[in-house]
Protein backbone atom coordinates (compact mmCIF):
# COMPACT_ATOMS: atom_id res chain seq x y z
CA UNK A 1 0.00 0.00 0.00
CA UNK A 2 1.43 3.41 -0.91
CA UNK A 3 1.82 6.02 1.80
CA UNK A 4 -0.83 8.08 0.11
CA UNK A 5 -3.26 5.17 0.06
CA UNK A 6 -2.66 4.72 3.79
CA UNK A 7 -3.32 8.39 4.37
CA UNK A 8 -6.55 8.12 2.35
CA UNK A 9 -7.62 5.19 4.47
CA UNK A 10 -6.73 6.61 7.85
CA UNK A 11 -6.75 10.38 7.78
CA UNK A 12 -9.83 12.57 7.98
CA UNK A 13 -8.48 14.94 5.42
CA UNK A 14 -5.66 14.39 2.96
CA UNK A 15 -3.79 17.11 1.17
CA UNK A 16 -2.02 17.11 -2.18
CA UNK A 17 -0.35 19.86 -4.19
CA UNK A 18 0.28 19.96 -7.89
CA UNK A 19 3.75 20.52 -9.33
CA UNK A 20 4.64 21.18 -12.95
CA UNK A 21 8.02 19.93 -14.12
CA UNK A 22 10.15 22.65 -15.72
CA UNK A 23 9.88 23.70 -19.31
CA UNK A 24 13.54 22.85 -19.77
CA UNK A 25 16.12 20.72 -18.01
CA UNK A 26 16.61 22.78 -14.86
CA UNK A 27 15.20 20.38 -12.29
CA UNK A 28 16.96 21.77 -9.21
CA UNK A 29 14.37 24.44 -8.33
CA UNK A 30 11.58 21.85 -8.51
CA UNK A 31 13.49 19.44 -6.29
CA UNK A 32 14.16 22.20 -3.80
CA UNK A 33 10.51 23.34 -3.78
CA UNK A 34 9.35 19.75 -3.43
CA UNK A 35 11.64 19.15 -0.47
CA UNK A 36 9.93 22.02 1.33
CA UNK A 37 6.42 20.88 0.37
CA UNK A 38 6.68 17.13 0.82
CA UNK A 39 6.70 17.11 4.66
CA UNK A 40 3.60 19.29 4.72
CA UNK A 41 1.33 17.31 2.38
CA UNK A 42 0.29 13.70 1.80
CA UNK A 43 1.48 13.61 -1.80
CA UNK A 44 2.90 15.70 -4.59
CA UNK A 45 0.92 15.40 -7.80
CA UNK A 46 3.33 15.72 -10.73
CA UNK A 47 1.57 16.98 -13.84
CA UNK A 48 2.00 15.60 -17.35
CA UNK A 49 2.19 18.23 -20.09
CA UNK A 50 -0.55 20.11 -18.29
CA UNK A 51 -2.80 22.16 -20.56
CA UNK A 52 -1.37 20.40 -23.64
CA UNK A 53 1.91 22.28 -23.21
CA UNK A 54 5.04 20.13 -23.24
CA UNK A 55 7.41 20.11 -20.29
CA UNK A 56 10.08 17.81 -18.92
CA UNK A 57 8.52 14.40 -18.48
CA UNK A 58 6.44 13.95 -15.36
CA UNK A 59 7.90 10.47 -15.00
CA UNK A 60 11.49 11.77 -14.95
CA UNK A 61 10.61 14.52 -12.47
CA UNK A 62 8.48 12.17 -10.38
CA UNK A 63 11.28 9.61 -10.21
CA UNK A 64 13.71 12.23 -8.87
CA UNK A 65 11.14 13.39 -6.31
CA UNK A 66 10.46 9.82 -5.21
CA UNK A 67 14.22 9.26 -4.91
CA UNK A 68 14.46 12.13 -2.46
CA UNK A 69 11.74 10.53 -0.39
CA UNK A 70 8.62 12.36 -1.54
CA UNK A 71 5.29 10.58 -1.95
CA UNK A 72 4.41 11.13 -5.60
CA UNK A 73 1.19 10.84 -7.59
CA UNK A 74 2.19 10.74 -11.24
CA UNK A 75 -0.29 12.14 -13.74
CA UNK A 76 -0.40 10.35 -17.10
CA UNK A 77 -2.43 11.70 -19.98
CA UNK A 78 -4.05 9.64 -22.71
CA UNK A 79 -3.67 12.58 -25.07
CA UNK A 80 0.05 12.05 -25.54
CA UNK A 81 0.55 8.30 -25.25
CA UNK A 82 -0.86 5.17 -26.75
CA UNK A 83 -1.25 1.96 -24.79
CA UNK A 84 2.35 0.92 -25.38
CA UNK A 85 3.74 4.20 -24.10
CA UNK A 86 1.35 4.23 -21.14
CA UNK A 87 2.38 0.69 -20.29
CA UNK A 88 6.08 1.53 -20.28
CA UNK A 89 5.51 4.73 -18.28
CA UNK A 90 3.48 2.84 -15.70
CA UNK A 91 6.12 0.13 -15.41
CA UNK A 92 8.85 2.75 -15.09
CA UNK A 93 6.83 4.57 -12.44
CA UNK A 94 6.47 1.34 -10.51
CA UNK A 95 10.19 0.63 -10.81
CA UNK A 96 11.06 4.16 -9.63
CA UNK A 97 9.03 3.77 -6.48
CA UNK A 98 6.06 5.86 -7.56
CA UNK A 99 3.04 4.19 -6.03
CA UNK A 100 0.19 6.43 -7.19
CA UNK A 101 -1.14 7.39 -10.60
CA UNK A 102 -3.64 9.99 -11.67
CA UNK A 103 -4.99 8.95 -15.06
CA UNK A 104 -6.59 11.60 -17.24
CA UNK A 105 -7.76 12.01 -20.81
CA UNK A 106 -5.94 15.33 -21.08
CA UNK A 107 -6.98 18.71 -22.44
CA UNK A 108 -7.30 18.65 -26.20
CA UNK A 109 -4.18 19.69 -28.13
CA UNK A 110 -5.88 22.73 -29.62
CA UNK A 111 -6.10 24.24 -26.11
CA UNK A 112 -2.33 24.12 -25.66
CA UNK A 113 0.64 25.69 -27.39
CA UNK A 114 1.28 22.94 -29.95
CA UNK A 115 -2.16 22.90 -31.61
CA UNK A 116 -0.85 21.09 -34.70
CA UNK A 117 0.18 18.00 -32.73
CA UNK A 118 -1.47 14.66 -33.38
CA UNK A 119 -3.68 13.81 -30.42
CA UNK A 120 -3.46 10.17 -29.38
CA UNK A 121 -6.36 9.09 -27.14
CA UNK A 122 -5.73 5.45 -27.92
CA UNK A 123 -7.22 4.73 -24.49
CA UNK A 124 -9.58 6.91 -22.52
CA UNK A 125 -9.17 7.47 -18.79
CA UNK A 126 -11.42 4.53 -17.90
CA UNK A 127 -9.42 2.22 -20.13
CA UNK A 128 -6.14 3.62 -18.77
CA UNK A 129 -7.31 2.72 -15.26
CA UNK A 130 -8.03 -0.75 -16.60
CA UNK A 131 -4.50 -0.90 -18.00
CA UNK A 132 -2.98 -0.01 -14.62
CA UNK A 133 -5.10 -2.65 -12.89
CA UNK A 134 -4.06 -5.23 -15.48
CA UNK A 135 -0.37 -4.40 -14.96
CA UNK A 136 -0.83 -4.65 -11.21
CA UNK A 137 -2.23 -8.14 -11.78
CA UNK A 138 1.09 -9.11 -13.33
CA UNK A 139 0.17 -9.01 -17.02
CA UNK A 140 0.18 -6.51 -19.85
CA UNK A 141 -2.80 -5.80 -22.09
CA UNK A 142 -1.68 -8.55 -24.46
CA UNK A 143 -1.86 -11.03 -21.58
CA UNK A 144 1.89 -11.51 -21.31
CA UNK A 145 3.33 -12.08 -17.90
CA UNK A 146 5.35 -9.24 -16.41
CA UNK A 147 8.73 -9.65 -14.86
CA UNK A 148 7.64 -7.93 -11.68
CA UNK A 149 4.27 -6.22 -11.34
CA UNK A 150 3.79 -2.62 -10.23
CA UNK A 151 1.43 -1.73 -7.42
CA UNK A 152 -0.58 1.48 -7.63
CA UNK A 153 -3.15 3.50 -5.82
CA UNK A 154 -5.15 4.85 -8.75
CA UNK A 155 -6.92 8.13 -9.17
CA UNK A 156 -8.90 9.95 -11.80
CA UNK A 157 -10.46 13.37 -12.24
CA UNK A 158 -13.98 14.67 -12.52
CA UNK A 159 -15.36 18.04 -13.53
CA UNK A 160 -18.13 19.04 -11.14
CA UNK A 161 -18.98 21.93 -13.44
CA UNK A 162 -19.63 19.68 -16.45
CA UNK A 163 -22.89 20.66 -18.02
CA UNK A 164 -24.82 18.46 -18.52
CA UNK A 165 -23.58 16.61 -15.43
CA UNK A 166 -25.33 13.21 -15.81
CA UNK A 167 -23.05 11.89 -18.58
CA UNK A 168 -20.05 12.96 -16.48
CA UNK A 169 -21.47 10.95 -13.60
CA UNK A 170 -21.93 7.89 -15.80
CA UNK A 171 -18.25 8.09 -16.62
CA UNK A 172 -17.31 8.73 -13.00
CA UNK A 173 -19.07 5.55 -12.02
CA UNK A 174 -17.07 3.66 -14.63
CA UNK A 175 -13.85 5.17 -13.26
CA UNK A 176 -14.71 3.91 -9.81
CA UNK A 177 -15.56 0.49 -11.24
CA UNK A 178 -12.34 0.45 -13.25
CA UNK A 179 -10.24 0.86 -10.12
CA UNK A 180 -10.01 4.55 -9.18
CA UNK A 181 -9.52 4.82 -5.41
CA UNK A 182 -9.63 8.59 -5.34
CA UNK A 183 -11.11 11.27 -7.57
CA UNK A 184 -9.78 14.81 -7.87
CA UNK A 185 -12.22 17.49 -8.95
CA UNK A 186 -11.25 20.09 -11.46
CA UNK A 187 -10.83 23.48 -9.73
CA UNK A 188 -13.97 24.40 -7.81
CA UNK A 189 -15.41 27.89 -7.69
CA UNK A 190 -17.60 27.67 -4.61
CA UNK A 191 -18.93 25.47 -1.85
CA UNK A 192 -22.40 25.25 -3.44
CA UNK A 193 -20.90 23.68 -6.53
CA UNK A 194 -19.29 21.02 -4.36
CA UNK A 195 -22.43 20.48 -2.28
CA UNK A 196 -24.56 19.98 -5.38
CA UNK A 197 -22.02 17.60 -6.81
CA UNK A 198 -21.68 15.58 -3.61
CA UNK A 199 -25.45 15.13 -3.42
CA UNK A 200 -25.32 13.43 -6.81
CA UNK A 201 -22.30 11.26 -6.07
CA UNK A 202 -23.01 10.25 -2.48
CA UNK A 203 -24.01 6.73 -3.45
CA UNK A 204 -20.81 6.08 -5.40
CA UNK A 205 -18.70 5.83 -2.26
CA UNK A 206 -15.68 7.53 -3.81
CA UNK A 207 -12.94 9.41 -1.99
CA UNK A 208 -13.20 12.88 -3.40
CA UNK A 209 -10.38 15.44 -3.31
CA UNK A 210 -11.61 18.98 -3.85
CA UNK A 211 -9.50 20.72 -6.48
CA UNK A 212 -8.61 24.31 -5.59
CA UNK A 213 -6.58 26.50 -7.89
CA UNK A 214 -5.04 29.91 -7.50
CA UNK A 215 -4.97 30.89 -11.15
CA UNK A 216 -3.67 34.39 -10.38
CA UNK A 217 -2.40 35.97 -7.15
CA UNK A 218 -5.56 38.05 -6.75
CA UNK A 219 -7.57 34.88 -6.15
CA UNK A 220 -5.48 33.69 -3.24
CA UNK A 221 -7.63 34.99 -0.43
CA UNK A 222 -10.77 33.59 -2.00
CA UNK A 223 -9.20 30.18 -2.45
CA UNK A 224 -7.94 30.14 1.14
CA UNK A 225 -11.46 30.95 2.33
CA UNK A 226 -12.99 28.26 0.15
CA UNK A 227 -10.41 25.75 1.37
CA UNK A 228 -11.39 26.41 4.96
CA UNK A 229 -15.09 26.14 4.17
CA UNK A 230 -14.58 22.88 2.29
CA UNK A 231 -12.41 21.42 4.98
CA UNK A 232 -14.98 22.36 7.58
CA UNK A 233 -17.87 20.97 5.53
CA UNK A 234 -16.79 17.36 5.93
CA UNK A 235 -17.97 16.73 2.36
CA UNK A 236 -14.70 15.46 0.95
CA UNK A 237 -11.78 13.22 1.79
CA UNK A 238 -9.24 15.91 1.08
CA UNK A 239 -8.09 18.77 -1.10
CA UNK A 240 -5.76 19.22 -4.01
CA UNK A 241 -4.11 22.63 -4.30
CA UNK A 242 -2.51 24.10 -7.39
CA UNK A 243 -0.97 27.41 -8.39
CA UNK A 244 -0.01 26.82 -12.01
CA UNK A 245 1.22 30.36 -12.61
CA UNK A 246 3.27 30.61 -9.42
CA UNK A 247 3.93 27.23 -7.89
CA UNK A 248 6.87 28.62 -5.92
CA UNK A 249 4.24 30.31 -3.75
CA UNK A 250 2.64 27.01 -2.74
CA UNK A 251 4.39 26.99 0.67
CA UNK A 252 2.95 30.43 1.36
CA UNK A 253 -0.48 29.18 0.26
CA UNK A 254 -0.21 26.33 2.76
CA UNK A 255 0.74 28.87 5.44
CA UNK A 256 -2.32 30.95 4.61
CA UNK A 257 -4.52 27.86 4.77
CA UNK A 258 -3.14 27.16 8.22
CA UNK A 259 -1.50 23.90 7.14
Amino acid sequence: MSKFEQALAHKDFVLTVELDPPRGVALAPLLELASRLAPRVDALVVSDNRGAMPRLSGLAAGARLAAQGAEVILTLTCRDMNRLALTSQMLAAGAEGIGNLLLVSGDYVSLGDHPGAKPVYDLDSVQALGLAVTLASGRDLAGQELDGAPRFCLGAVVAAQSDPLPPQLIKLKKKAQAGARFIVTQPLTGLEELQGFCRQTATLGIKLLAGLEVADPGQRQGVVGLFKEIRGSGLVAGAHLSMPAAQDDLPALLDACGL
Partner: peptide, 28 residues
Protein backbone atom coordinates in the same frame (compact mmCIF):
# COMPACT_ATOMS: atom_id res chain seq x y z
CA UNK B 1 -12.35 15.18 -30.98
CA UNK B 2 -10.96 12.74 -28.43
CA UNK B 3 -12.96 9.81 -29.80
CA UNK B 4 -14.01 8.94 -26.25
CA UNK B 5 -15.84 5.63 -25.92
CA UNK B 6 -16.76 5.55 -22.24
CA UNK B 7 -18.40 8.93 -21.83
CA UNK B 8 -17.42 12.58 -21.92
CA UNK B 9 -14.17 14.20 -20.85
CA UNK B 10 -14.45 16.93 -18.23
CA UNK B 11 -14.60 19.73 -20.76
CA UNK B 12 -18.31 19.90 -21.59
CA UNK B 13 -19.94 23.25 -20.82
CA UNK B 14 -23.56 24.03 -21.71
CA UNK B 15 -23.56 20.98 -23.92
CA UNK B 16 -20.64 22.29 -25.98
CA UNK B 17 -17.20 20.82 -26.55
CA UNK B 18 -14.10 22.08 -24.77
CA UNK B 19 -12.42 22.52 -28.13
CA UNK B 20 -15.03 24.91 -29.50
CA UNK B 21 -17.98 26.60 -27.79
CA UNK B 22 -19.85 26.55 -31.09
CA UNK B 23 -19.72 22.82 -31.38
CA UNK B 24 -21.96 20.32 -29.62
CA UNK B 25 -20.30 17.85 -27.25
CA UNK B 26 -20.88 14.45 -28.83
CA UNK B 27 -21.44 12.92 -25.41
CA UNK B 28 -24.11 15.44 -24.50
Amino acid sequence: PKGMLNGPCGGTRQGKCETDPERDCAWS
